[in-house]
Design a protein around this nucleic acid. Structure first.
Lengths: 138, 138
DNA sequence: ACTTGACTTAGACATTGTCTAATGTAGGAT
DNA sequence: ATCCTACATTAGACAATGTCTAAGTCAAGT
């Protein structure tokens, strides 16, 4: 994730300890934390960081296109740092575990003009739901 | 939607004025109300209905498979009475308008075994995003 | 018409997210 | 190296959405 910090600096982002910590927390694959989880982990590294800053920083990262907001779960938003490789999500209906997946085929192409109602369609979000091996075993 | 009331009675649902009103409010195509919107409209027909009852009733309808919860918007859950014809959603990124759509192709078939991580995948939810004709004109 | 268990209610509480005014600080200017 | 200042951070109030509880009410079978 050091590329991220690098890129952001290049875009004129002022670098602060708080922002560094948030970016660190978001590092990795198959990472889909809620804002609150990001905050907890950030507090572990920098105890005085505030909730508002975490929300602000996440919002900025989303605006900059560096992090995606995903709504896999119907409670809190989750933040996915894997914004530069398009992908979709596979969610366990029981425990909520989330994996990134890469389906073949392009769902955008599957929406005929007659089903577009005059919209300019630019994006598609796919969420697969099922039961993960762990929960199936239990 | 009278079939719905019929079906529910058949399943041993106790019929009350409150439940009837919630079912009536949810009638129609391209209906995707938040719990709060359902509540407002229900109050118009039955002023003393409480928020808790609306939430309870919506939850029951979802459990019974008569209504779907959709997370198109990242704020409140929305409730879609069109549960018996599989479909996906097309959302305007600006005004939030939602249409039901029926893509060709089956996205479930597009997820190869190698991308299933041992999950038993049972369902898929697709959300297309774009700009509706109204917002494009503005 | 009774009775009873399921339904509804008001409102407290919980969770998630947003906003503000005061304070602190990164990084360019001197 | 120090100073400035615009931008960032903070605590906490507030807002929106959702959940729970205890007490009262009522649908529907008898």
């Amino acid at each position: 994730m050091s590329d991220l910090l690098e890129r952001l600096r290049g875009r004129g982002w002022r670098m602060t300890a708080q922002r560094r910590v948030v970016a660190e927390v978001l590092d990795g694959d198959h990472v889909h934390l809620t804002a609150d989880e990001v905050h907890s982990r950030a507090v572990a590294k920098l105890p005085e960081i505030s909730r508002a800053t975490v929300y602000n920083t996440l919002g900025e990262l989303v605006s900059l296109g560096e992090v995606l907001e995903v709504a896999t779960d119907k409670r809190a938003k989750r933040y996915d740092p894997n914004a530069h490789r398009p992908h979709h999500h596979l969610v366990c209906a029981q425990c909520g575990a989330i994996r990134d997946v890469h389906p073949s085929g392009n769902p955008l192409a599957d929406l005929p003009d007659s089903e577009r109602f005059g919209f300019t369609v630019s994006d598609v979000e796919v969420t697969y739901r099922g039961v993960c091996p762990n929960c199936a075993a239990a």
